[in-house]
Design a protein around this nucleic acid. Structure first.
Lengths: 135, 135
DNA sequence: TTACCAAATGCAACAATGCTGCAAAGATAT
DNA sequence: ATATCTTTGCAGCATTGTTGCATTTGGTAA
């Protein structure tokens, strides 16, 4: 599935900014930061445009945002279609890499009486295979 | 355990700002935001002082910070002593309440080969008992 | 192809969270 | 009471994110 198809499927105007951003994320295997996307993109876009583009892509379920420790923000392509209720990510304490994990086999805690769970976000922090060796 | 004891135990200078903040948190049953603490505190303190005080209290394991959706920041008293590797919180989508939950019975996902887990943060979003009825 | 309209972009301004350096004020030990 | 070390307030700055408005661009209909 390429950039054009993705935008078409969601009835989004095929602008150069959107194409560049999705293109940059298709190439990356892990979640990427705004800076990393900027460096992968040819043209130069306004900061506002970036944020609005991210917002649009998130609202359409094309990408999702991952925030680690309140100030590290990364974006990753969402798996097509299905709405997931468990969002699971790994963060490497050493190199800062963020990776989406499968959330099917996690178990969430008992909630107090009357509480209702809608969705969950789990961040596992630790060391990735590379940093685990180098450490 | 009162404010004075808590600060003494950690060899922290007993300043009015620290006492006020801890006092405000001892009173609250849930996690509180900077604004909520400000409104509970008599004196008026500089924003920087607040942040530095939070930082000090966090470093000493007295409180911890919870961030929901990148921009809602709340603080809660930590249970005394023990270092926990699973941090679990509940966030109410309707009233914004944040509550610490017990993380003993959660299960974290399988990690890719070579990865090592150090700690995890889980946020369960949904509706608290009150909002679940009103909804 | 051209003209048009809705959508997207760039710019300026602003808000919230957070940090740092430095001088003034406060706490603690003697 | 004084000396010393810590904390506080202030000013300034950085990052992430938002909004309003004028301009440009993309898609479409003539």
């Amino acid at each position: 599935m390429d950039t054009r198809e993705i935008l078409q499927k969601h009835n989004l105007v095929r602008t150069s900014c959107r194409q560049s951003i999705i293109g940059a994320m298709l190439g990356a295997g892990t979640a990427v930061s705004e800076e990393e996307i900027k460096s992968k993109v040819d043209g130069t876009y306004d900061r506002t445009t970036f944020y609005r583009t991210f917002k649009t892509l998130i609202e359409n379920g094309i990408i999702h945002k991952i925030v680690v420790d309140n100030h590290l923000v990364k974006y990753a392509l969402s798996e097509s279609g299905m709405h997931k209720s468990h969002h699971v990510h790994f963060y490497c304490n050493q190199c800062g890499m963020v990776k989406c994990l499968d959330g099917n086999d996690i178990k969430t805690p008992e909630l107090p009486t009357g509480y209702k769970e809608v969705e969950t976000e789990l961040i596992v922090k630790g060391f990735c295979s590379h940093c685990n060796l180098v450490k």
